[in-house]
Simulated assay, not measured.
Amino acid sequence: MSLQPQLRPILRQNNAVDPDDPTFQAARETLYRTREFFQPYSPYIKFRAVLGFGSSGAVTLWPVMSHSGRFQDVAIKTPHDENDDLFRQEIQWMEKFSSAEHFIQLARLPSYALNSALYNNSKSEGPPLIVMKYAERCELNELLLGDLGLMTEFDLDWTDEEKIAAVTDIGRPNYVAPEQRDRERPLRENAFGPHTNIWGVGLLMYNALTLYQVVADDGDWAPRACPITMPDGSAKNLVTWAPFLVGREELVYDEFKAYGDDLRTLIARCMADEPEDRPGLQELLDTTTKNIAAGDRIAAAAQEGWERQKEGYPGRREGPVDVSRPPEVEDDDLVRRFFREYLNDPPARGDPYRDYW
């Protein structure tokens, strides 16, 4: 065993298509039904594109005419199986989180575009539909997250078999926490809680930091004991699912060594195998706030130095940013550029199946 998990870039264009794939075949049938359903409302709502599809449903893009006569985009999610109870359950969860900041929210259509009883209604007698705000582009303070499709409320009164079935083999394999991977852990007392969210935060921090994700079916991705230095200066052998970030120098991936030890260690602790080895929410918040403030001071000092340099050379320009390495100074302009290029105006995503729908 190489002990070196495989990583792959998050931002990649996958143009491989298989028109005979059963998932695509189901999505194509779902698209046909959805377009047929909305046909009577075509003056006010029009199909534009398929945004994506999976094993349970498809999401499509529809411009809707507002009262002013202007069109506004919404995303519509339709299940492959109109009797899918999990799909109706997803509507219930989205209703429950209707005021939660940074969650994709349900959208309300004008009454002339569609009867409100026919969508975002878990008790609808017709085919279930989810109409959502479209968040392809967002501002720095409007980042929206959340996918509640497989969410379930854990019941301590369940049988052992029900507990295991509810949390194992569910979700994206490269994002589930360790307590979901081991069939015995769901039976532990307090198996799930804030520590489970900490795992997810750590993995997302890793994704944002490196623009890589782990290949979930790689047998070499497993927790490993790595020597780290804790915030209080003490030494610890941390069993973590991020061995490519910390530990023995020769096992840390070269492309990550340029990042600071403190940041890599924090992420590795969030991705610790045992919940008690992960930092608490308050420590995570305090550490993040402290380091953002320190970075702001460094950025301000660097900007002052740059302004002094320009006084002697008015035509001097800053050099290009080397995107392959973390910047020495992460100033506000660089953060805004990241959000603009990856969130506000992200790389265009073509539909590899556009000729097969």
Rank of each mutant, 00 (worst) to 15 (best):
L3P: 00
P5V: 13
P5Y: 12
L7E: 07
L11F: 15
R28K: 15
E29Y: 05
T34S: 11
R35H: 07
F37W: 04
F38Q: 08
Y41R: 11
A49Q: 05
V50L: 01
L51A: 05
W62G: 02
V64M: 02
V64S: 01
M65N: 06
Q72A: 11
K77I: 03
K77F: 02
T78N: 02
T78K: 01
P79M: 02
D81N: 11
D81R: 02
R88T: 03
E90K: 10
M94N: 13
S98M: 01
E101Y: 08
Q105R: 14
A107N: 09
R108A: 13
S111M: 00
A113S: 14
A117I: 06
L118K: 11
N121Q: 12
S124M: 02
P128M: 09
A135T: 11
A135V: 14
A135P: 00
R137V: 03
E142Q: 15
L144S: 08
L144C: 10
G146F: 04
D147K: 06
L148T: 11
G149D: 06
G149K: 05
T152E: 14
D155Q: 15
T168L: 12
G171E: 00
R172Q: 07
E179C: 05
E184T: 09
R185L: 13
L187W: 08
F192M: 04
P194V: 06
H195E: 15
W199F: 15
G200A: 14
V201N: 03
L203F: 07
L203M: 04
L204G: 00
L209E: 02
T210D: 01
L211R: 14
Q213T: 12
V215E: 11
V215T: 03
V215R: 07
A216D: 02
D217R: 10
D220L: 12
W221F: 05
A222L: 13
A222V: 13
D232L: 12
S234F: 07
A242N: 08
P243N: 08
L245K: 06
E250W: 02
F256W: 05
A258T: 06
A258E: 12
C270P: 04
D273P: 05
P275K: 09
P275I: 09
P279M: 08
G280M: 03
G280C: 06
N291T: 07
A293M: 10
D296L: 13
I298Y: 04
A301S: 11
G305M: 03
G305K: 11
E307I: 04
R308K: 08
Q309L: 09
E311V: 07
G312W: 07
R316K: 09
R317G: 01
R317A: 05
E318K: 08
R325G: 01
P326A: 10
D331F: 06
D331E: 12
D331M: 08
D332S: 14
D333I: 11
R336A: 15
F339C: 10
R340H: 15
P352N: 06
Y356N: 07
